[in-house]
Design a protein around this nucleic acid. Structure first.
Lengths: 248, 248
DNA sequence: CGCAGAATTGATACATCTCAAGCTGGGTGG
DNA sequence: CCACCCAGCTTGAGATGTATCAATTCTGCG
């Protein structure tokens, strides 16, 4: 069982893979040392629920590796994804008791957690943490608002193109590729999860992906691997102004 | 012209109407004094644009009175409201040059502004400001995510009911009414603005409002004044679980 | 009074959903 | 090693909710 196996995770913040991007990014060495005292790792298998909406949540933390989703569900089962959590993203809210959303591991997942009370105390005494958290929260707010435009005003085709553009852009930036070349990446989501992100049904997602493929905007190797031969053409389909390369 | 008339606004933070809710809420007297040095008021008439998306923005600030909207527009004119700014809400983002959205005054509007550079410096030296801003940003992030569910998964009727519920609830909480009684409030938005908020057309908004009225869920006095005889019934129509009174 | 912006209402078009049937590929057990 | 199985995915046909286009009707105001 993977649950307790995090041998592949460094326990030393100094060489943590998300050291420079997570909530601890601005911390000095001595601040990291105090964080180390209250941190612990947790691992989850793909499909496991990390937190249930409404549950008491006595920790906050960062995604170290893997992908998780943040979703909201109505009584009748309609669900909307409200966030995609990638490595370095922060989970939980200081100053709140219960979780507002379901957090589900989409792939195998490792999180670096902090007990909430001590973390809240550290926030008071360590401006670097609060500053970084503010910056990250502002970025997430922008992302959420960007997504409101997608959900409220874009067509199904534009929604799919927007999602592929976002994933492709992030992937290219991690690999430090330019947007001029062919972009190849794996979809981290099932068709159903994409539908929940985009406010569509999985059938519509499937149809629109097929249409984009038919028209040569994307190529598929298997169901998950996507090639974008001309990224600017994909951005046009997404309805984004110009090549908008730097806004996200 | 209203532009330069803010005689009705206190210049003394001590008795500012948003003193206890705005970004300065946690400041001590001496901190307020330093804020006073960099603050100035600006007034706008209904319909005026406060900031254009993409423009350089050299200030941040709080809404003192009136209502403004935060909107995003695509090249072809489709627009999505991504935020409704009420008194005490914060505008602008420390650490960013340009504005990400259009800010438009929906009613006559007074803002308390701070030049950005000095404000950013104060944030470094005054934890109370950064703490409060983080708290407010987290709240806005939650509101944005709540709205993603509305935009992505709710029907037109549920969207309208959700909007009425939010406005009505806020209004009742300002007036300290309980949710048991009849709620009466004025819509601060035109049908078109409601449509832009909800990702609908104005015709659909109008039809759904008429339907809710026909079925006795709401009553109208004129176009703008709304009476909700039974708030819990409205919440059912909104698709919200139970009476969800305290989640927002 | 009459105009202009805002809102309502109607008829029709169309995008997406719904329901249903098949396909595909990777894993499993005989 | 093959046949089967099943979750994930694709495709089709028809239903439906919302958009679109168009015509009135309100309402406040000069």
């Amino acid at each position: 069982m993977l649950q307790e196996d995090f041998s592949f995770v460094s326990h030393d913040c100094g060489d943590c893979p998300i050291r420079h991007r997570a909530v601890c990014a601005r911390c000095e060495t001595d601040e990291l040392e105090r964080l180390e005292e209250i941190k612990y790792y947790r691992s989850f298998e793909a499909g496991q629920t990390v937190v249930w909406s409404g549950d008491r949540m006595d920790f906050v933390g960062s995604v170290v590796s893997g992908i998780a989703t943040l979703t909201q569900t109505m009584e009748d089962g309609r669900t909307q994804m409200v966030g995609l959590l990638l490595p370095s993203d922060f989970v939980g809210r200081p100053g709140r008791e219960g979780a507002a959303y379901d957090v589900v591991a989409t792939s195998d997942l490792v999180m670096c957690c902090f007990r909430k009370k001590p973390f809240e105390q550290m926030m008071e005494t360590t401006p670097h943490i609060a500053q970084r958290l503010l910056q990250m929260t502002l970025d997430e707010l922008d992302a959420a608002r960007e997504w409101m435009l997608v959900l409220g005003r874009k067509t199904a085709r534009e929604k799919i193109a927007s999602l592929l553009a976002i994933i492709g852009r992030r992937d290219a930036s991690i690999k430090s590729l330019s947007m001029q070349e062919r972009i190849v990446f794996d979809l981290p989501l099932t068709r159903e999860a994409m539908a929940d992100y985009l406010g569509l049904t999985l059938e519509t997602v499937s149809r629109q992906i097929s249409a984009l493929k038919r028209e040569g905007l994307i190529e598929l190797q298997g169901k998950r691997r996507v090639t974008v031969p001309d990224f600017s053409r994909l951005l046009e389909e997404a309805g984004d102004d110009s090549d908008g390369g730097l806004l996200v």
